[in-house]
């Protein structure tokens, strides 16, 4: 008996809409999909080496060290890479300056004083401004990324430690040493809310789910902030001294949050696909894991180790170390091109 499948006209009309709705539901996955790239040409990985005043450049596809760049300053700590990968912004904790590195020539091309203990830097979503948190001044400096001029300073609460922007760019989140996350209205440059978090809140990052993910280094947990409510939506204990977070896939599972946990010498993998946070696995890494970043497609994470002075390349599919690259002293932050 032949069975024919027929579609009514209303159903045919609604199918593109259904497909659109499904795709919208998969928005988190789309974040990790990139256009095809010629093999071995693109992924550049950078580590900020706080104790050697340099940035190491690595090929993220062939796992080779390509060179080292002098920041011309003291204590490079955090980095932000422009979307086109051409400019690398580096904070220098010791002398309060930001180095601007031209990634093509691998040279520092500008040095800008922002404030005492310039700690972290984040580029606005349109890359027009660099926001720099100055721990000892309790301020955020706003730098024009074209002319390198500071165009404003926003006061925040005590000891700004991390910065991230919401997906739509309307809000900036700044974690501070007084156990808060300051929410800044980016159209007014005003703090509009303070969200209590845990002790020594540190790193902040926008997750593929549109939420803001942060680490409480002092209370061994990570938390997520829902930008719709500006409230903590969840938290989970991951181990002593969690540092930084990256998002990647493990086969069909994910996106997952990969958290460096210094006190365990592990990367703890947290399920980032559901509102309730849960730990999927723990990966043994080297001594003092701190900086972490994923490649654009989410199949590899690069982990910097501040004690063993190297960057480990981890295949997230197998959770195995693919390579270990020697870098400068105390690589505290790692970023990779998109």
């Amino acid at each position: 008996m032949n069975q024919r499948i027929t579609f009514s006209t209303p159903l045919l009309i609604s199918m593109p809409l259904l497909l659109g709705a499904l795709l919208t539901g998969c928005e988190t996955m789309q974040k990790l999909v990139s256009t095809p790239k010629p093999q071995g040409l693109n992924t550049r990985v950078y580590s900020a080496n706080e104790s050697s005043n340099t940035v190491t450049v690595m090929d993220g596809d062939t796992y080779q060290v390509l060179g080292e760049i002098d920041t011309l300053n003291y204590g490079p700590h955090d980095m932000a890479l422009s979307r086109d990968g051409k400019q690398l912004w580096v904070t220098n904790l010791a002398n309060g300056r930001v180095s601007v590195i031209d990634t093509d020539s691998r040279k520092t091309i500008a040095s800008i004083y922002t404030g005492t203990r310039a700690h972290v830097v984040a580029l606005t979503n349109n890359n027009k401004h660099a926001w720099v948190a100055n721990i000892a001044d309790n301020t955020i400096s706003i730098i024009d990324t074209t002319i390198y001029r500071i165009l404003g300073t926003i006061p925040v609460s005590k000891g700004p430690m991390g910065i991230a922007f919401s997906r739509d760019g309307k809000f900036a989140y700044v974690s501070t040493q007084d156990k808060m996350v300051n929410v800044i209205d980016t159209a007014a440059h005003q703090v509009i809310k303070q969200i209590p978090v845990g002790p020594n809140p540190h790193f902040l990052i926008l997750g593929p789910d549109g939420r803001i993910w942060g680490t409480n280094t002092g209370s061994n947990d990570i938390y997520v902030i829902d930008p719709n409510t500006q409230e903590i939506a969840g938290s989970i204990e991951v181990g002593p001294a969690p540092q930084q977070i990256a998002f990647a896939l493990k086969g069909t599972a994910g996106p997952n949050a990969y958290v460096t946990v210094t006190g365990l010498n592990k990367v703890v993998v947290v399920n980032a696909t559901s509102p309730a946070l849960s730990i999927r696995e723990q990966i043994d890494v080297g001594e003092g894991p701190n900086g972490i970043w994923a490649n654009a497609v989410g199949t590899t994470v690069y982990v910097g180790h501040t004690k063993s002075n190297n960057v480990m390349v981890i295949d997230t599919g197998t959770s195995q170390v693919s390579a270990t690259l020697p870098v400068g002293k105390k690589p505290i932050r790692v970023v990779a091109s998109r």
Binding site: L72, N73, Y74, A94, N95, R97
Partner: peptide
């Protein structure tokens, strides 16, 4: 001095 704003270069 460590607190100086001078570039290291």
């Amino acid at each position: 001095l460590p607190g100086s704003s001078t570039p290291r270069h």
